[in-house]
Design a protein around this nucleic acid. Structure first.
Length: 805
RNA sequence: GGGAGCAUAGCUCAGUUGGUUAGAGCACUUGCCUUACAAGCAAGGGGUCAUAGGUUCGAGUCCUAUUGUUCCCACCA
């Protein structure tokens, strides 16, 4: 029997342990049910799990449970992304050190300790949320097996000529001192000044005005450009101009990339101020002049400004320009600046040897592959399409960092040949291991190891390959690819989704998954993201779980529409708590009447019982349809409103029949018993997706002894015998309307609902059906006598009220 | 500058391919301890569906424009 009150604090933990011990969610490799596989996002180990993670992961978890309940063999692994820059930054902060201040090995040890600690916390948290992931399938990206897969992926691309090593302009973060990829940039609005400078024309007292926000790059100026259509400045072509302060001369060239209405219509080209500069650098074979070093300080060519930070140099240069009367005017502006997403530092461009994966040459393929995947919601595909269309650079995967997957690469010291490791020795760290053969080109045996590590996305982009055992068990890989579903939030479409599509195509010419499910963000207020920096992320999951229970948090995670951001609102937790409480009480009530009941499928049903079953079937159909479109929230609200109707109308109508079979007959009782038995059972299964704990508690103490299945989470949805019947639904709804009118009469007249009515008259078009429910109507309204009138519209007249005692 | 989402009751949101009088929950008002549940039940008030046109017998729903708002991308001369 069920306890009088549900104590979530003890019960949730109890059932979590029960599921683990009994392998309730374990993937069964030898099962002929259709497989549904989920490429779960491995959370980045860079801090605590916040409520936004819980929101997003819960939505995917609902899908896993739904698929199990609808006959699928669910493959639901979980992983952690614990290598690369984000983890390094966490460790540096937590240990209060800099990675370069200790040896690589020491640092690596600290990283491993830290990620171990965090991963344990992460896993416990997801378990305490009732996650149904199969923890036997857990992976973490810094493990040997993941490193092997990641290095194999690199080698496969190398052999297929999809990755190249080149001295090419790459985005550079001076704070993290590493190359980064385009996808790691963020825009930030910054205040700046537009400085109008005098560039004197050679052998002339005349000058040309050039506006720039970055005067500190004057020393790296190669030339100035005008637009070929610019008649006003045409006369400058072929001449040279003097760079202010530095007094060297640069040529005037023309290029149609110059926008005549921007600034003065004349632009200086430096190596490198922006992306356009890199294009001109290549196109006109300009000289490389490096003004800023790897750490963001001015170099030798900056002359007296050498050693200053770029911003300090800028303000001093502006002062000097003013002093020398070379500054015409300054306009204050705000503009969007690209910064590194991890640290907010303004991006620079550096020319260095780096490894790149080819993405630009296959834009059309990426778009075609995007079209082969179903995006939920569909409009989120446009984020992917926009990203692919706007790609400017190949994917730079070299990181000048310490903790991550090493490149399986050496360079021959004698001839410079690139040596890629044999697959047999993977995973390999080239810093500690040498190639197992001499240089194939010159036979040399002296090697320079590649010190850089791979971009963390280079590894996380092979999670489908990790999950489906690519090059470990190729049978399994062939069977499981493409995976069924990739769930993630919209911020990583351009990274995780895009890169994974690129890799799967290059490796196997496959899309990685058939569906992508995109969840929204949790906002602190309509305009404010939850963020640790702003201190509004104090709603930590552990506190919420102990205050409200995991089931209630899951309820909250199910509110809202797929893909849309939601504003954190504690009201939802209260509503969820009420719903769960009601579900428990309703189950207790139902089981007052079915504990000694043996289900009999041949029970003859009364009309009102048929009505609620039909209404149930109609709701179930919508619920399933919503789930098939990944609309977990809309599915729940269908179920939720049906459930309240079931409690407040149906149970109220029939409860007297159940209490008093001596008055209303055993058949009437059995019809009710049959109905509540099956409708509650199916509702519990449907609720179990959102509330795995309380539904298990109810199931274990009630249905289990009859049905036998070890856990409610091992059951599947069943259809009830009466499918949706719109006419029947309308008739039953009319009965509810009649009862509601009588209740309204009592409320208006301020009398108790249990006050007896001596006589009421019901007008309706459907007298026959209503008469067939007379017993239930009398019980719900406390009417002693009912008269009927055939009429076009429904109405109830109250003719007599019994005197109260 | 390009793209996407959103705009429905005080608040949070439903509203399927156009089809009677636009729904729910919260909040609010009133009443009720009813043999599951007062963490409950019942009833009620509250909306020119952002604005302006258009298509249609009929528009919250479709089309066009506008406004507001959020997000993504580009813009760093």
């Amino acid at each position: 029997m069920l306890d009088n009150k549900y104590d979530y604090k003890s019960k949730e933990k109890k059932w979590q342990e029960f599921w683990q011990e009994n392998n309730i969610y374990k993937f069964n490799e030898n099962c002929n049910k259709p497989v549904f596989s989920i490429d779960t996002p491995p959370p980045t180990v860079n801090g605590k799990i916040h409520i936004g993670h819980i929101f997003s992961y819960s939505q995917a978890e609902f899908i896993a449970r739904f698929k199990r309940m609808t006959g699928h063999n669910v493959f639901y692994p979980f992983g952690f992304d614990d290598n690369g820059l984000p983890t390094e930054l966490l460790v540096e902060k937590e240990k209060n050190i800099k990675a370069y201040s200790v040896t690589r090995e020491e640092f690596r040890k600290m990283c491993l300790e830290t990620v171990d600690k965090y991963e344990k916390e992460f896993k416990d948290l997801f378990i305490s949320m009732g996650s149904s992931a199969d923890w036997d399938l857990m992976y973490h990206t810094v493990s040997d097996s993941c490193q092997r897969t990641s290095q194999l992926s690199f080698i496969d691309l190398y052999k297929k000529n999809k990755v190249y090593y080149a001295n090419a302009p790459a985005l550079w973060c001076t704070k993290c001192h590493t190359a980064i990829a385009q996808s790691e940039l963020e825009s930030e609005e910054k205040a700046s000044t537009f400085n109008y400078l005098k560039f004197f024309i050679e052998n002339s007292d005349d000058y040309v005005q050039i506006a720039t926000t970055r005067p500190e790059l004057l020393c790296a100026c190669d030339c100035i450009f005008i637009n070929p259509k610019d008649t006003k400045n045409k006369h400058l072509l072929g001449k040279k101009v003097r760079v202010p302060l530095y007094d060297f001369y640069v040529p005037v060239l023309e290029d149609d990339k110059v926008e005549m209405d921007k600034g003065t219509g004349v632009v200086m080209c430096c190596t490198f101020g922006d992306q356009t500069d890199t294009q001109w650098f290549k196109k006109y074979n300009l000289e490389l002049k490096i003004a800023i070093d790897d750490y963001g300080y001015m170099t030798d060519i900056a002359g007296k400004y050498k050693g200053l930070k770029t911003k300090e140099a800028r303000s001093q240069i502006i002062e000097d320009l003013k002093f020398q009367n070379l500054l015409i005017r300054q306009d204050n502006i705000t503009h969007q600046v690209s910064v590194h997403e991890r640290c907010g530092t303004e991006m620079e461009i550096k020319l260095k040897k780096q490894w790149f994966i080819k993405t630009l040459e296959n834009k059309q393929i990426w778009l075609d592959l995007g079209n082969q995947i179903d995006w939920h919601p569909s409009f989120m595909k446009s984020r992917y399409v926009d990203w692919v269309q706007n790609l400017m650079m190949d994917w730079c995967i070299s990181r000048q960092k310490y903790f991550g997957v090493p490149f399986p690469v050496w360079y021959c010291k004698d001839c410079g040949e690139i040596i890629v490791a044999d697959e047999s020795i993977l995973p390999v760290n080239p810093l500690t291991t040498s190639p197992n053969h001499p240089c194939p080109k010159c036979g040399g045996t002296n090697f320079e190891p590649e010190k850089d590590i791979l971009d963390t996305w280079a590894t996380s982009s092979v999670t489908p390959q990790i999950n489906t055992r690519w090059n470990v068990s190729n049978d399994f890989y062939d069977k499981m690819m493409p995976m069924s579903l990739r769930p993630n939030a919209h911020d990583i479409i351009r990274t995780w989704d895009f890169y994974t599509i690129v890799k799967s195509h290059y490796h196997s010419k496959l899309i990685p998954w058939k569906n992508v499910m995109i969840s929204g963000f949790v906002m602190a207020s309509p305009k404010e993201k939850l963020s640790k920096r702003k201190g509004n992320a104090k709603l930590d999951p552990e506190t919420l779980i102990s205050t409200y229970s995991a089931d209630v948090i899951r309820y909250w995670a199910a509110t809202g529409s797929l893909g849309r951001d939601i504003v954190f609102n504690e009201e939802k937790f209260k509503i969820g708590s009420r719903l769960i409480n009601k579900l428990y009480n309703a189950s207790k009530f139902v089981w007052l009447f079915i504990q000694d009941y043996t289900p009999n499928k041949n029970t003859k049903l009364l009309n009102i019982d048929k009505w609620i079953i039909s209404k149930f079937s109609s709701m179930q159909e919508k619920y399933i349809k919503y789930f098939e479109n990944y609309e977990v929230g809309l599915a729940m609200s269908e179920l939720e409103s049906f459930f309240w109707n079931f409690c407040d109308n149906y149970i109220e109508l029939i409860k007297m029949r159940l209490y008093n079979p001596d008055l209303f007959g055993n058949d009437a009782k059995q019809s009710g018993q049959y109905t509540i038995f099956y409708v509650l059972l199916e509702m519990l299964k449907m609720f179990s997706i959102y509330f795995p704990h309380i539904t298990e508690e109810i199931y274990q103490n009630t249905y289990k002894k009859i049905l036998g299945t070890i856990s409610i989470h091992k059951s599947e949805f069943d259809k009830l015998p009466i499918l949706e019947d719109k006419a029947l639904i309308a008739l039953g709804d009319e009965v509810c309307d009649i009862v509601s009118r009588v209740r309204g009469y009592k409320t208006d007249n301020k009398i108790s609902l249990k006050t007896k009515l001596t006589n009421i008259v019901i007008s309706s078009q459907n007298i026959d059906f209503i008469k067939s429910c007379e017993t239930d109507i009398k019980n719900a309204t406390c009417a002693e006598k009912i008269e009927y009138k055939l009429a076009d519209s429904t109405n109830v007249e109250i003719l007599g009220i019994a005197q109260e005692d």
